[in-house]
Amino acid sequence: MTIEDAQPLPVLEYLRRQLAGTLTSADTTMLRYPTAISELLSLELTHVSERSANVRLVADVTRHGNQQGTIHGGLLCELADAAMGTAHSTVIVSGESFTSLDLNARFVRPAWSGVLVARAYCTHVGRTISQYACEVIREDGHEVATFTSAILTLRGDSARGR
């Protein structure tokens, strides 16, 4: 069998192999991993299971800070969105894609330089729309922000070109 003959792995299997360090150059999946934004921000997948994912960021206020000297809320939104999107991607099959319908943020306390972990999980599975929640936690264990998102699964013509 050649690389061209190899079938793409299901997303969950691909990400599990990536985490285990057993992913080979011949392994592919139908979605793009790592994503460009994840590479740009140095986001790291640390856990994945069906409809669940944890994404880690080593935050630095000199790179990720706002006017007050704390981590910018937009970065926290991206971290949570990456975790929730990754969680949902674990159930996407060939011919499907997905998009976020909304992203709701509630900021609890500030974060400064250090490790942040976004823990995303599904709270409701629908035929086309699923609901996700995510907590971003500082390395001292304190919650920084909570997020929710509705994610739409696209199929057929709606999924093409995405």
Rank of each mutant, 00 (worst) to 15 (best):
V125W: 12
A87M: 10
H124T: 07
L103T: 02
A26H: 12
P110Q: 14
A133F: 08
R160A: 13
S149R: 02
A111P: 01
A59G: 12
E96I: 08
G74C: 04
G74Y: 11
R106D: 08
D81I: 00
V108G: 08
S42Y: 06
R17K: 15
V55D: 02
T22D: 14
T148A: 10
N66F: 03
L43W: 07
G141I: 09
R106N: 13
A26M: 02
S113W: 13
L31C: 06
R106H: 15
S89W: 13
E50V: 04
T148Q: 12
G141H: 10
R155W: 00
L40D: 07
L40W: 07
A118H: 08
C122L: 02
V55F: 13
A36Y: 05
C122G: 01
A159L: 03
R109T: 13
D140P: 06
T90P: 00
V144Q: 06
V108T: 15
R106P: 00
H64K: 10
H72A: 01
L75Q: 04
F107N: 03
E139M: 11
T62V: 03
V117T: 10
E135C: 05
V48L: 05
L19P: 06
T86D: 00
E96K: 04
L154V: 02
R17P: 06
A26L: 05
R119A: 05
A87R: 12
G21H: 02
L101H: 04
R160G: 05
T90M: 03
S97R: 05
A87C: 08
A80R: 00
G21E: 05
R63L: 11
R16Q: 15
E139P: 08
L19R: 10
R17Y: 02
Q131G: 07
I37H: 03
Y132C: 01
T146D: 03
L9N: 01
M84V: 08
Q18A: 11
S49N: 10
H88Q: 09
I92H: 08
V11P: 02
L101G: 10
R155M: 11
T24S: 14
T146F: 04
R17V: 04
N54F: 09
S94F: 10
T90W: 11
L19H: 05
D27Q: 03
V136M: 09
V93I: 11
F147E: 07
L75T: 04
L19N: 07
L57R: 13
L31D: 01
D157S: 13
A59T: 03
T153V: 07
L76E: 00
P34Y: 00
F98V: 01
S52F: 08
D102C: 12
E39G: 05
M84R: 10
F107Q: 05
G74A: 06
Q7E: 11
R63V: 07
L116Y: 12
S49Q: 13
L45M: 11
A36L: 11
P8T: 10
T99D: 12
